[in-house]
């Protein structure tokens, strides 16, 4: 929820619209909230005044400079009012207003209300009208400086990048964010987004990305974001999860060094699971190893999910022994 801007308005020696000589010709229209309203908001006097006049101009469809100013006051009092923004855009179009000026106004507004959907949507429409996304990377970066996981900012940034092909330099930016906070999951997602939309996960890129990620895991071994990214990379390995020698060796070494990160153990379980499913290598050994790992997770390293890991241990136990459905039917065939 954004703070109401009543205080700001009063600081600027607020004059009610009803007391403004240049608004004498407009009929203010009160809100009809019915006989027995619910969830009534104790509107401030300023709020009621501004919205009475907003309803007034909406009725006459006045599209003028003063109406434009009124929408600014109305948006200031409630930036989540999508009709105010819609009407503001309709006025801007009708008066052929300078869109750059509007872009600057919405820049300031988003800075104040960076988690509000409507203000970001307004900016997106303006950028579409201008057909120019050249300011969007810098702008979203400035928002991400105060909140580097702001979903709206990332959404807007990705949209601008896709629309205006602005991928250059983005991997460096992502890297700088990860250097600041290696656990920034939004930055990891952005890394995936950039690779996916530029080079794609070719063998070379995949190998480099794996190196990058293993390096980051070495710095923070309990960092789920990096482990998830690693799994994401392995989706592009045609051989599957358990055949990438670099990753397998890394995981085994880490385990043998005594590390028991729940994310490491979970990946090792999935590797065993895959080996059993594919019937490659020593299935019995993989099964036993998988079951042991699940038990370790359940009893020591991921106890909050103990019921899940016990279930996984059971699943592995049944797998490949002819007691699960898939195997029963394949035997029957």
């Amino acid at each position: 929820m954004s703070d109401s801007s009543d205080e700001e308005i009063s600081q600027q020696k607020w004059v009610f619209y009803k007391d403004r000589p240049d608004w004498k010709d407009v009929e203010p229209i009160p809100q009809d909230d019915g006989e027995e309203p619910v969830v009534t908001i104790a509107y401030s006097k300023e709020f009621t005044d501004v919205y009475d006049y907003f309803r007034g101009i909406l009725k006459t469809q006045e599209k003028s400079e003063r109406a434009l100013q009124l929408t600014k006051d109305a948006a200031n009092l409630n930036p989540a009012n999508y009709t105010v923004w819609q009407y503001r855009r309709d006025i801007i179009k009708a008066l052929k207003k300078d869109l750059r000026e509007e872009l600057e106004y919405i820049r300031q507004t988003i800075r104040k209300h960076s988690k509000n959907y409507q203000v970001w949507h307004h900016r997106k429409v303006l950028v579409e009208w201008l057909n120019d996304g050249s300011e969007e990377l810098e702008f979203t970066k400035s928002i991400l400086e105060t909140d580097d996981k702001n979903y709206h900012a990332w959404q807007h940034r990705q949209w601008a990048m896709k629309t205006f092909k602005l991928y250059e330099g983005e991997l460096d930016y992502v890297d700088s964010l990860l250097q600041t906070d290696i656990r920034n999951n939004s930055a990891w997602n952005q890394r995936y987004f950039v690779v996916n939309n530029t080079t794609g996960f070719t063998d070379v890129v995949l190998s480099n990305e794996i190196d990058y990620t293993l390096n980051k895991i070495n710095i923070a071994k309990e960092n789920e974001s990096a482990w998830n990214y690693l799994r994401g990379l392995l989706l592009h390995d045609k051989e599957g999860l358990s055949k990438n020698q670099k990753v397998v060796k890394f995981c085994e070494d880490l385990y043998n060094s005594g590390n028991r990160s729940a994310f490491l153990l979970a990946l090792l379980v999935d590797m065993c699971d895959e080996e059993i499913t594919q019937g490659s290598g020593d299935v019995l050994l993989a099964r036993q190893k998988g079951i042991d790992l699940c038990k370790e997770l359940a009893s020591n390293y991921d106890t909050i999910r103990c019921k899940y890991w016990e279930y996984m241990a059971n699943t592995l136990e049944k797998k490949g022994t002819g007691t699960d459905e898939a195997c029963t039917s394949s035997t029957a065939n």
Binding site: M1, S2, D3, S4, D6, V39, T40, I41, A42, Y43, S44, F47, L77, N78, P79, A80, N81, Y82, T83, N116
Partner: peptide, 10 residues
Amino acid sequence: IPSHFASYDT
């Protein structure tokens, strides 16, 4: 609800 909930008005 109080006036500072104004952004819930819509």
